[in-house]
């Protein structure tokens, strides 16, 4: 059952060193405030899962929190590279990073399979691609009915899923609107989940088919206004596309990056954690 707590306490309780963590949000609703709290608490040896690592995993990797990354597209959307991710993969800085690389279709299926309690995801995927040659988690099975050879990958079942949403009601039910990505699947696939929200309201006013996570599917809820910035929260604030462009120069240089993180994340504290 969802327990309301501070972001600090939620991360301290549910994100342990060595844990497998999925912070999701497909360009939209990326849980930056929570990610920054993970950085401030100096979590180490994390296995990070995320379809699009985005700036948040660039920051976690650059700050030395990760030992392994499972992902499907590791760029700065519309801008170029994630330089901290590249530095870790190309030069092992600040620590070597093991990568397990997929396609989006496979990652989406792996979350869905995790939510469905299955050990694997099956898809008509990776045909002709070299990805199966470099990722031992991409294998194949024969359909028992047609004999068709299909791709199989392990389901994503993280220790903890971390997401950001528009709002929760006082009982701890959570509403997600707009581009909903794989957040519902990530939460249902995970052993524990931490949800940050823009605000707490009396009534979600959700229409019958809305994407709602009942309180009893969530471990912890923390209020973090602006918690998705510099990504965005549909209905609250837009994506800071200009910051995504600025990040390229900040992350390109190790020292510039370290200084930026010190100033904007380490010394910023929880309430300003999402400032950018």
């Amino acid at each position: 059952m969802a327990e309301f707590m501070s972001l600090h306490d939620a991360i301290a309780r549910y994100v342990n060193d060595g844990a497998t963590v999925a912070m999701e949000g497909f360009t939209h609703l990326i849980p930056f405030a929570a990610g920054h709290e993970v950085i401030r608490q100096k979590k180490r040896d994390l296995t990070l899962i995320r379809m699009t690592p985005d700036l948040i995993y660039d920051q976690l990797i650059g700050m030395g929190c990760a030992k392994k990354l499972i992902f499907s597209w590791g760029g700065n959307p519309g801008v170029g590279s994630l330089h901290r991710l590249r530095d870790a993969v190309e030069k092992g800085y600040p620590t070597p990073l093991e990568i397990h690389e997929h396609s989006h279709a496979a990652m989406a299926c792996a979350y869905e399979a995790g939510a469905a309690g299955l050990p694997l995801a099956v898809l008509r995927g990776y045909i002709g691609s070299d990805l199966p040659k470099v990722n031992p988690d991409i294998r194949h099975i024969d359909c028992p009915f047609t004999g068709e050879r299909l791709a199989a990958i392990p389901s994503n079942r993280p220790d903890v899923a971390i997401i950001h949403a528009q709002r929760a009601d006082k009982q701890g039910n959570v509403l997600i609107e707009g581009i909903i990505g794989v957040q519902k699947e990530a939460v249902l696939a995970a052993k524990h989940s931490v949800v940050t929200v823009e605000e707490i309201v009396d009534d979600l006013n959700a229409h019958p088919n809305a994407c709602v996570l009942p309180a009893w599917t969530i471990s912890a809820i923390a209020v973090a206004p602006g918690g998705a910035a510099p990504s965005y929260t549909h209905g609250y604030y837009p994506r800071q596309n200009s910051f995504y462009k600025e990040w390229d120069a900040i992350a390109r240089d190790r020292d510039t990056f370290a200084q930026w993180m010190e100033e904007h994340v380490i010394n910023a504290g929880e309430s300003k954690g999402a400032s950018a």
Partner: peptide, 25 residues
Amino acid sequence: LPLSIGDGELCDTALTTVSVPEMFR
């Protein structure tokens, strides 16, 4: 034009928005 594949502009002007697993599957 969106800068990213998930800009709000795309959702605001879409007929409908589905989850990413649904999109690919």
